[in-house]
Design a protein around this nucleic acid. Structure first.
Lengths: 204, 204
DNA sequence: GTCTATATAGCGATAGAC
DNA sequence: GTCTATCGCTATATAGAC
């Protein structure tokens, strides 16, 4: 690979700006309610110009979600370097998800039957990344079960789905919208209900 | 009130059929992807006839969600007659939600920023019912906290939102779609993660 | 109250000039 | 690659006959 030309760098910057706008709109309105006109307006270019960069609305959304997954992957890699137990790593992941969502930096994962879901399952890069991330998390889950920090009777994939579901939990946005609790306090409560349940820790 | 005429009864039956079809489509595709044409086709009447019964797509969805809430309310009333502790009642409610969803009888509650949410918050009957249901659940939650079955440090509304969120948890449909676990087994796992967390019960 | 046919509008995507 | 202008389709909602 040669060094990128000025032209290529400008293109890359422009496309980053597009993905930023898409990301913001996905957070704000979700895939179905987001329009390509809005994306173009947010970036400050004409709609037709958008289509020179990305071939479809689906590709726009996929690009944003792929970038989110890449950031998640980077966070996992950084976590893996630290001297932490498996359960502590999993909790850090959930906390990271909540922080990203609270700060409006991460779109909700698509629930079943959504348009976005079918878009993403058709995107090779996204599926590949999701598999890699799941691989890493799966290893930590099994380790946490051996450590006795996660219920050994739960199949690892059930645990994995439950963790992923934190990325589309409506409780966080509701509590944020309510505005009567502190950010960190909300994180503590939701981390608690996730790992210790509504009953709370038994030996505290 | 006089006794209903034959005409009124036929009207009511027809509208029940419409709400049934809407309910089914809401479960299947969600509000945004459901079209009024589909509803009409499912009922077997023309679209224009639908609009004689309900003034808009929004009203259709609201009617279906109101009926769901009425059924929830009836279940709560029945539960209140039984000799159960507060925590046991709350678990029964969560189990009921999961059963309804598993059997395709209950649409997912709308997450934040969805079209359906703004539709429902604008519907007086729905909001009123939701308040009544929340009142009952709120009482049980506080009792369960006094009993020590739910973490006393959690604000009751955080607990309430967490329970409501079980009605739009993607983990249940994913596990159902996977098809590799038994229905009752899935309920046990999800009930467990809800009340005892991923860590599981500590003194079991 | 049911139908057929149509109005109206929004949105994804494209044509074609520059 | 950027723009303006427009196509083509779909979906909500309505008109008007019966």
């Amino acid at each position: 690979m040669n060094a990128p030309t000025v032209r290529e760098r400008m293109l890359r910057v422009r496309e980053e700006a597009i993905v930023d706008a898409v990301n913001h709109l996905l957070v704000d309105k979700g895939y179905d309610l987001m329009t390509v006109d809005e994306v173009a307006a947010a970036v400050g270019i004409a709609k037709a110009s958008l289509y020179k960069h990305f071939p479809s609305k689906e590709a726009l959304a996929a690009a944003a979600m792929v970038r989110t997954l890449q950031r998640a992957q980077a966070f996992l890699a950084q976590l893996a370097l630290q001297d932490l137990g498996a359960a502590a790593r999993l909790k850090a992941v959930v906390r990271w998800i909540m922080q990203m969502q609270y700060d409006g930096a991460m779109p909700s994962l698509p629930s079943e039957n959504s348009t976005l879901r079918s878009v993403l399952t058709g995107d090779r890069a996204y599926v590949q990344l999701l598999m890699e991330v799941s691989e890493v998390l799966g290893g930590w889950i099994e380790q946490a079960q051996r450590d006795g920090d996660i219920d050994r009777r739960l199949p690892p994939d059930v645990v994995l789905f439950t963790l992923y579901a934190r990325a589309c939990d409506p409780v966080l946005p509701i509590l944020k919208a309510g505005g009567q609790y502190e950010r960190e306090q909300v994180f503590e409560w939701l981390l608690g209900t996730c790992f210790d349940g509504l009953a709370g820790p038994r030996q505290g």
